[in-house]
Design a protein around this nucleic acid. Structure first.
Lengths: 249, 249
DNA sequence: TAGTGGTCTAGACCACTCG
DNA sequence: GAGTGGTCTAGACCACTAG
């Protein structure tokens, strides 16, 4: 930690240290459930305070990379846990983490007045102008899901299909072009059946079971900024991690 | 924070303060998205260091109760987010949070030698002696899910149906009687169809779509201690919160 | 008993937001 | 510029685990 990289002006030390530890784990230098050096040792080795080391440890613990046990030490989380983090732009990342090639086929990109349902979820007036983007999501070229996203654009802005087709990701495009800043999301999941259109687009028989995921994305001020309805074929796995039991009452 | 309760010997101050804040929110003293007093004000008012206040804030932030924004302040999370925390013993708690009465009908409590599949998931030898508990989960008396749990018991221990029928919760019983100590869990979800038996137990037509949740529960040492296969009718909602986008490389 | 993580303090300075 | 949260330090003591 002595002589710092060029970007150290902005990256806090605890994140730098966290990256060092995470890289060591990802490169297999530390095995599952193996103990890390003690906090005091890490502090000395990297010339930071113990409190900064603890911040790194918390940071990685929240992400399921390591875990600490009072009086015993800090350990590498088993890979089954490490692989399970969820992120907001989950489809592409999840798929890549699982070794698949994510893809998409854009169906429509069009203006859409908010229906009562969507307006309620987004906290807007019915009829409010939204953009609706419908896509088939692919893994290794095979259709696995349908995404139907609704979001407002800043007044006067436009989004066309060509733009989206070139972009690496819808979220990245929205973020860079329109200042779309997702901070958090809530998701509701349930089982359902494919209707005729779903079935045709996903290449499955009508009535097949599908996993339905509804998501509301919130800005840093916790204003709803997107509603997305997703439908997945039954071979698609949605993975999640449930953190430490929190002594609720 | 001056004169403390009797149990203050063990409860850390930051959790006591977190409880004070959470209670204020739950009692409606603070509205959604309303700003909390600044960290410095809270530190002065409750006579703790600012760092301790920050621990309380982190603690509640992880649980989706509040959120902080650099330079702006700390705010009450909107109720749509606050309601979304998941816990390991989720069914009973989730159901209660939603205003329903959770219940169960125990189908079988029996010894079961680990199949190859379950053995692999639990990191045991096939044939290892396990207990298998099958239950129908109810909300307001109506069947909504099937739980099929497998776990090892300490050598020589036994678990019978009568015991389970009296217990408040399977987890509580296992924890208190056998030192079962869940620290974390991973879940995989996908859509499927009810077979004849599922359909009969859930009171739905065979072939109906169901939400299939597989869970592996891990101990504080991250050893797998339970595998549970859950099937839910399509009206059941599985809710989750996706925390702040974490700058993963 | 030695070593580990957990809590707590008091103070400093930086980075960000907003009027 | 005033106020907010974010980072960092150095040190102290407690609680837990294990040989």
């Amino acid at each position: 930690m002595a002589t710092e990289q060029s970007n150290s002006t902005t990256t806090p030390r605890y994140k730098q240290l966290a990256d060092i530890i995470r890289n060591a784990i990802e490169q297999g230098l530390l095995a599952d459930n193996q103990a890390l050096p003690s906090e005091r040792e890490l502090a000395e080795k990297y010339e930071v305070s113990r409190d900064t080391v603890r911040k790194s440890v918390r940071y990685l613990e929240e992400r399921g990379v390591i875990y600490s046990d009072h009086g015993r030490g800090t350990f590498v989380a088993p890979s089954i846990v490490r692989r399970m983090s969820r992120f907001i732009d989950s489809f592409s990342q999840d798929t890549q983490h699982r070794g698949g090639a994510p893809g998409q086929r854009i169906l429509t990109v069009e203006p859409s007045a908010a229906s009562m349902g969507v307006a309620g979820l987004l906290g807007l007036e019915p009829g409010y102008p939204l953009i609706r983007v419908r896509r088939v999501r692919l893994i290794d070229g095979a259709a696995v899901g349908l995404h139907d996203a609704y979001f407002p654009l800043p007044r006067g802005s436009k989004l066309d299909r060509a733009e989206l087709e070139q972009a690496e990701s819808l979220y990245k495009l929205l973020t860079e072009k329109f200042g779309f800043a997702p901070a958090e999301a809530v998701e509701n999941l349930h089982a359902g059946s494919a209707d005729a259109e779903d079935a045709q687009l996903l290449g499955i028989p009508p009535g097949s079971p599908i996993l339905i995921v509804e998501r509301i994305t919130l800005s840093d001020r916790r204003e709803p900024i997107e509603y997305c309805l997703m439908k997945y074929v039954s071979s698609y796995r949605y993975s999640t991690r449930i953190a430490k039991y929190s002594g609720v009452a």
